[in-house]
Design a protein around this nucleic acid. Structure first.
Length: 425
RNA sequence: GGAGAGUUGGCAGAGUGGUCGAAUGCGCCGGUUUCGAAAACCGGUGACUGUAACAGGUCCGAGGGUUCGAAUCCCUCACUCUCCGCCA
């Protein structure tokens, strides 16, 4: 959520910035609501002030034993008026809130302008795409011929966009998650956190998935109204919701390995083959809650933590800065990390690290006590994948494949696989 | 699922209709003291909104109601805890 004050100041500049985010702000509607809000608020507060004063006088008169009949008569006429105006006021305020809740975050000044993914800019890359004299097979081909990846099984019990992993390939998947979690906890100083996979509306509003992206979520039931998490960003970031965090607790760095659930409502034709885009996938998620002046430094650090995983796995990747038009709703700045997939001869997203500045913090009322002022101020939150487990599995399978369809186990994963060095039939 | 207790400021915890936005303690900030620190003592210290600054308004889990006036009374809901039942 944007600062309501920023709308009252330089609205034109704001509208222009939002346009670069692909969002058209309804200026007319806003002005109309804001005008009504102001009037109603002034009127309501003035009436309340009168009521409060007279009521206090009544109390004083009564405690002295004086007759308060006149005062009581005077104030009795105010009640209905106050009730009427204040309910009108809260209606307008709700409308304004709803409007505000649907506005995406503003981009940081360092973010390239662009309307779609073509505006994204590569920052750096690591590792050399492998060359070989045989043609690379994709993960589906490899997995199925090993007899360890079963889409028929998954389709039968659940439907499309699911997969069943079997045998040591399932073990490799588990090893990847373990390895990532261990690295972040032991080497990067994160607090391991095990969280609910079902969350309430408030949590999804806090991180920005609701109300705008309801159709992307799996809602489980009406009573209680719970949603499957689309990412552990939701439960982890909400750790600071409604809190005033002491300075000493910052920076807060949390990591969780969870399943994630997405409807993929708007992506019917895309990535239908294999486990690139699934309704359920696993991810190791990183979340930072930091002092506002440290958030951009934190974004670099977090991205570095995700990169470390790929470097240790020996997977070539590149990092791009998303342009204004390609960023997610809550982000001020996002780096995507893309892993090299030899079968497709291109880089595919495996991690996305974002600084949301105070956008989520304002939605969830997450503050810290600034020791310089002694006052509570909104803190900054960041989230990033460190990294997507399923896509890392694809990366390993494709990059470590041999001509005979077997797969080398990356060095760092062997301790998690009882020393296994190669996956073959 | 059944029975009971609770939800108040950063934290703990008083407050059961009228100068209560709220005692007290802890914490925090400032001062005295000290070579310095601790202890002790003194003073300050909720949030949001609003204003040039005052003023004003809102907030005692959430939402309704009663009343001239609600943290306090009534209703609904949410959450937490204890006991019983069931259960991985």
């Amino acid at each position: 959520m944007l600062d309501p004050k920023s709308l009252r100041q330089d609205l034109d500049a704001l509208v222009e910035k939002l346009r670069w985010r692909g969002y058209e702000f309804d200026v007319e509607k806003y002005h109309e609501l804001e005008h009504r809000r102001k009037n109603l608020q002034e009127q309501t507060e003035e009436l309340q002030a009168r009521r409060n004063k007279i009521s206090r006088d009544i109390g004083i008169a009564k405690s002295r034993g004086d007759d308060a009949g006149d005062l009581m008569h005077e104030v009795s006429t105010l009640g209905d008026d106050i009730k009427f105006r204040s309910s009108a006021l809260s209606e307008v305020q709700l409308e304004l809130q709803a409007m505000l809740g649907e506005i995406p975050n503003l981009a940081h000044e360092s973010v390239p302008l662009g309307m779609n993914e073509e505006g994204n800019v590569e920052v750096r890359h690591w590792g050399m795409p492998r060359v070989s004299d045989f043609s690379f097979r994709d993960h589906v081909d490899l997995g199925e011929s090993l007899g360890m990846m079963d889409y028929g099984f998954a389709g039968k019990i659940a439907g499309s966009r699911f997969v069943v992993l079997k045998g040591v390939l399932a073990g490799l998947h588990r090893a990847l998650a373990q390895f990532m979690l261990d690295t972040h906890v032991r080497e990067h100083g994160y607090s391991e956190t095990n969280v609910p996979l079902l969350v309430n509306k408030g949590s999804l509003f806090g991180t920005g998935q609701l109300p705008k992206f309801e159709e992307d979520q799996f809602k489980t039931s009406e009573d209680p109204p719970l949603y499957l998490i689309p990412t552990a960003e939701v439960p982890l970031t909400n750790a600071v919701a409604g809190r005033i965090v002491e300075d000493a607790e910052l920076p807060m760095r949390l990591v969780a390995h969870t399943a994630c659930f997405r409807r993929e409502a708007g992506s019917y034709g895309r990535d239908t083959r294999g486990m690139i885009r699934q309704h359920q996938f696993e991810k190791v998620e990183l979340v930072h809650a930091v002092r506002p002046d440290e958030s951009y430094e934190s974004l670099e650090i977090m991205t570095g933590h995700a990169e470390t995983i790929l470097q240790k796995l020996g997977l070539p990747y590149r990092i791009i800065t998303l342009c204004t038009g390609d960023m997610g709703f809550a982000a001020s700045k996002t780096y995507d990390i893309e892993v090299w997939l030899p079968s497709q001869q291109l880089y595919r997203e495996i991690s996305s690290c974002s600084n949301t500045e105070d956008f989520q913090a304002r939605r969830m009322k997450a503050r810290w006590r600034n020791p310089e002022t002694g006052k509570p101020e909104l803190l900054h939150t960041l989230n990033g994948s460190g990294v997507a487990v399923g896509r890392a599995l694809i990366g390993v399978m494709e990059n470590y494949q041999n001509q005979d369809g077997s797969i080398e186990v990356p060095e760092v994963l062997r301790p998690y696989m009882h020393g296994l060095t190669r996956i073959s039939k």
